[in-house]
Simulated assay, not measured.
Amino acid sequence: MPTVGDEARARLRSALAETTARLGAAGVPSPSADARELIARAADTERPLVLLDELPVGFAQRLEEGVARRERREPLQLILGRAPFRRLMLDLEPGVFIPRPETELALDLLREHAAGPFDTVLDLCAGSGALGAAVLDELPGARVLAVEIDPAAAALTARNLERAGPGRGRVLTADLGGPVPELDALGAVDAVLSNPPYIPPEAVPRDPEVFHHDPHRALFGGGADGLAVPRAVIGWARRLLRPGGVLVMEHADVQGPATRAAAAEIGGFDQLSTAADLTGRDRFLVARRAPGEQTDGSERLSR
C-alpha cells in the first residue's frame, strides 16, 4: 500500500517533469534547474526534494503561479526574492539589478592585486549591494560605503549590508556623475569595487530577463561607448584611493583597451591591467593608485 511519502514523491516527480517541459518550451535556458527551484519554493522547503514526505496545502497553486511567471521569462531570482553571491544569499526586489556570477571574481582580484589591511572599501554603483556585502562577509575588519543612484536599490543594499556585516556598512544615495560632498569628505580608502552600467546605447540586450527586468539605468553606461559612468568610477577611484589602493571594475568583454585608456588618461595609477573571468573573457579593469602620489579629498578632477 502506498504511503504518504510515496504519494508526495510521485507528485514531485510528475511536477518536475511537467515543469521542466513547460519551461523548456518557453525558452528558459536552464529548465530543469529552474523547475527544481520553483518546486522547492512551492513546497516551502530548503531540504532536498527526495527527502520530502509530504507537501503543504496550496502546493499546486503556488507552483503554478511560479511557473507561469517564469514562462513569461521573469527572472528566477525575482520569483524567489533572493540571489546567491559568493557565500551569501542576498535579498532581491523588482527594479534592482540582479547580481551575476561573473561579478563574484572581483573579490578574488582584489585580494590578488592589493595588499591589506582593508579598513575602508567603496562599492560604487552598488545595485543590490552584492560586492559590498561580500566584502563585509569575507574581510571581517573592513567597513564598506556603498554608493547607489537609485533610492529603492540603495534601501535594498542597506539591508543586504547589514545582514552581511552588522554595523559595518553604510549606504549613500548619490549620482557619481556630479559633485558628491560626502565622498569628498571621506578621506583615503583602501579599495574601490564596482560593477557599473557599461552597455553602449546600440547594444540592446537580447535576453528578455535582462531587457524587461533589469533597470536600464543599471545597464546602459552613457555616452556613445557606454563608458560615461565607468569613467566617473575611475575618476572617483583616482580621487579617493590611498597610495597603493586598488580599483577593480567590471566591464564588457570588448572594453578592456578602452577602460585602460580611460584610466591612463585620468592618471594617478601606476599599474593598469585587464583580468579575465572564469570563461576567459576580458571583464575587469584592475588599477593600482600610484604609491608616490598623495590622495587629497579636496582634489578636483574633470569627470
Rank of each mutant, 00 (worst) to 15 (best):
G5R: 15
S14D: 14
A15N: 05
A17T: 14
T19V: 13
T20N: 11
R22W: 05
E37D: 14
L38A: 07
L38D: 02
T45A: 03
R47H: 13
P48G: 12
V50M: 11
L52E: 08
R62M: 11
G66W: 07
R70N: 02
A83H: 10
R87K: 12
R87C: 12
R87N: 12
L88P: 01
L88H: 02
G95L: 09
F97R: 04
R100C: 10
E104Y: 06
L109I: 07
E112I: 00
G116L: 02
L122Q: 03
C125H: 05
L131T: 10
G141V: 12
G141Q: 15
I149Q: 12
D150Q: 14
P151T: 12
A152Y: 05
A153Y: 01
L156E: 04
L161A: 06
E162P: 09
L176I: 08
G177E: 13
E182A: 15
D184R: 15
A188T: 11
L193T: 03
S194C: 14
A203G: 06
P205F: 11
V210P: 06
H213L: 06
P215Y: 10
G221S: 08
R231T: 08
L240G: 04
G244S: 03
V246A: 01
V246I: 04
G256V: 01
P257Y: 03
A262T: 05
A262S: 13
L272C: 00
L272H: 00
A276E: 13
D277V: 09
L285Y: 01
A287Y: 00
D296S: 13
G297H: 04
E299S: 15
